[in-house]
Design a protein around this nucleic acid. Structure first.
Lengths: 208, 208
DNA sequence: AAGAGAAAGTGACAAATGTCATCTGTTTTT
DNA sequence: AAAAACAGATGACATTTGTCACTTTCTCTT
């Protein structure tokens, strides 16, 4: 099994290579030092598994993973990272990472690689424990702290449901002109151009 | 501790009530049978915890939870559901459910209630095990199976980024008129009215 | 009661949007 | 080669949208 190792700490990279190649069935064709190298080396060596750090100088591991997965959706990527990278866990999971291990868990790396090679997902128990917390904490600034007043917020929500001005007016018992005025001020406050961008903003930043 | 129980199966509801009220510190002020009742009863009784099924006749548990959380964001909601409701888990977590238990896990309900009452999150181990799988599998019918051709899909994506027709035309090296025509056919195929609804559609149905 | 200030409305305008019928080249089919 | 299919473009049109200046109406303050 070919395992490409990417970590911006040279010492870690070499240690990993040593450990992994002590296994009879593992080879490490190359060591990368950042996301860009990961992409290039992945393309060159077509490893069975990519074992990569997340926080790195230059391109980070998540963006590299996204790029690699875009061309090879079956890529098996296993992140090896430090505990404090909480906020990355969700993104890694979404991307379709096959695993997410903590560097502390040194001895579980080899078994994890075997498991991933066999098609399993591997997430360290500390990681799994964090998932509900992470998912259940509202990720983005909630409506309450926007510089919008009540009406503007209501209108924004209706825009985000796809209503046009006339329908919004009927729903809120306002004239269409008033709705337009509120919408206009909302757009200005959020520095957006039109209702479509507002709907997008809503789904990107404000959704449960 | 007041626990509102909502399940559309009367037998389950009554069983739960019996079990819970055997505990000295738990009372069950009412039994609801669907989401709409859940909302009304929640408002009426202000329970400490809402214990609710997800799949129910009439309004489902998730929509009810969303409504309740909209007015009382500190509501403690614990879903009790069957194993097959996989695709709901993520939504439940996002909403900020405090727990997600399987009905099989009957004996863990009481301790779970105590834990939630104490501010903890409780997710059955089978549920936690599923999370990575669920998150890493693309949830929705992906672009490939839409009745749209290449150009229409590209345009849809750009609309979903908030570009106007002129910008889309420049990006794709098409005339603005052509962009409009493609957009028009896209809207018709998806039975949508305007670009805002299209952007919403994109984020609701097609986003990773 | 007078006046300040919201909240809501009006009217006018330019720009953007969505629809339609039609036209122009290419490529494919037969 | 003729016909059909296709991608792209055009121009006209009715609507919708966003902006702005201004008015009306209500509410609160003093």
């Amino acid at each position: 099994m070919k395992v490409l190792v990417v970590d911006d700490d040279r010492v870690v990279g070499i240690s990993l290579k040593t450990i992994l190649e002590a296994e009879p069935d593992i080879t490490v064709p190359a060591l990368g030092r950042d996301g860009a190298e990961a992409i290039a080396l992945y393309k060159e060596h077509q490893p069975d598994i990519l074992l990569m750090d997340i926080r790195m100088e230059g391109m980070n591991g998540l963006d590299a993973a996204a790029t690699i997965l875009a061309t090879d959706s079956s890529a098996k990527i296993l992140f090896l990272t430090t505990f404090s990278d909480d906020e990355y866990i969700v993104r890694a999971l979404r991307l379709g990472a096959k695993g997410y291990l903590l560097k502390q868990d040194f001895e579980s790396i080899v078994p994890a690689l075997h498991a991933v090679y066999g098609g399993q997902n591997v997430f360290g128990s500390e990681v799994v424990k964090k998932i509900p917390d992470i998912l259940s904490t509202p990720k983005e600034p909630d409506v309450s702290e926007l510089p919008l007043n009540e009406k503007e917020i209501e209108i924004m929500k209706l825009v985000a449901e796809g209503l046009n001005n006339k329908e919004i007016a009927q729903t809120l018992f306002l004239s269409e002109g008033t709705v337009r005025n509120y919408l206009s001020s909302t757009l200005e406050k959020l520095e957006l151009r039109d209702r479509t961008q507002l709907a997008i903003y809503y789904y990107k930043h404000l959704q449960p």
